[in-house]
Design a protein around this nucleic acid. Structure first.
Lengths: 208, 208
DNA sequence: ACATGTGAAGCGCTTCACAGCG
DNA sequence: CGCTGTGAAGCGCTTCACATGT
């Protein structure tokens, strides 16, 4: 059996994919050196990462771009659509609902939900905001497997539990709190304020 | 001299800080076990991480909450204001300009810039969108050291170079491209679509 | 000749396990 | 006794260096 792909490699695959798509249209082949420069990593890492997908390079030449794009897409499960629901239609939820980058990768936003009756019924990017009472049924009907949480911190754990109960298996959490996943549920956290604090640490340390 | 704090620890400090602030108001002390449960890590990691700050725990008791909050804040450079500029006033840029979470940590948004003349002059969260021609002067005048890039991918590298030339030392990049930093410049990337692709990988791998 | 693929060494972080101390 | 602080072991990722293959 193929060895499991290391977590860090999984996180870099989308980066490589993006770099490959940014290559000039006519370029059929790419070397690990070239890809490494684009992705901001070193060449050995590129080769090791790609080797987990199998041997798709040609010695003395490089990697076939089209084949590599296909293979990374297959590995990431991008050959199919993924239905996504967004919970919390504040500024950030609205921005994500409108974000074109999701559609490019076949992530379809199939539902927007908010607890605020004042927001329910509003149209956002072609969807109508629905009440939380509709969440469970909507997740099942529309086959959503991914939920994006953009609620305030105070609501995030409860919302994640509701998503999980409804059948969502993966959650992208923008709320500034650590959500405790139930068994088998995969949660990724994006904390905007944390990112700035990390930058601030290094500014501070470097004498600012 | 105090040993350098590992990168991974730096990334966890903001999480601990948030957990400490979420404790009940009356709670003066917290154990590594309790903090670990809140932060979603194990207790040994908490103790090791906090030991890099110095010895602020009391054996048999735990950590003094107020003292730890202060100490982490000092380490992260949060005792002062940080001026931040945002480049690219699309949906995401607008959402970030309105994001209250930055202000809580004394990150002040002091400028919004966009290349689109149609956006220049618009008011967003108390600020007026300015043209790119004002960027360099504004960064200097207002002492900005952090830039947030929410432009399309095609503009991001050029914008980052302009920010760097103007005196910004750290960049938070939301554009879906790897920006090459000039020497001494610290760049963090937040790629929303990448996050979903990582989730998709594990869904796919787990049989969906 | 040239670039991949890969054992093996190197490195940093995680976890263990217990000494140290209130 | 309870919980922190920390050497040391364990583990996974990175990087090297070169054998491999075209």
């Amino acid at each position: 059996m193929k060895p499991a792909i290391p977590k860090v490699t999984v996180q870099r695959l989308p980066v490589y994919l993006r770099c490959l798509e940014d290559l000039p249209a006519g370029q059929a082949s790419v070397s690990s050196d070239e890809l490494a420069a684009m992705a901001g990593v070193n060449a050995a890492k590129v080769r090791k990462d790609l080797s987990y997908l199998g041997s798709y390079g040609v010695r003395g030449v490089g990697y076939d771009v089209a084949r590599l794009v296909l293979q990374i897409g297959l590995e990431l499960g991008l050959e199919r659509d993924w239905a996504v629901v967004i919970i919390g239609v504040g500024n950030l939820g609205r921005a994500l609902a409108n974000y074109e980058g999701f559609g490019e990768r076949r992530f379809r936003v199939v539902g927007l939900f908010d607890i605020d009756p004042g927001k329910v019924g509003q149209a956002v990017d072609g969807l109508v905001v629905e009440p939380m009472s509709r969440l469970a049924a909507a997740v099942v009907e529309r086959g959503a497997r991914i939920g994006i949480v953009t609620t305030p911190a105070s609501a995030a754990q409860h919302v994640a539990d509701q998503l999980t109960a409804a059948g969502v298996r993966s959650i992208l959490n923008f709320a500034p709190i650590v959500i405790k996943p139930q068994d088998g549920i995969d949660i990724r956290r994006v904390d905007l304020s944390t990112e700035l604090q990390v930058l601030s640490f290094y500014l501070h340390r470097n004498g600012e």
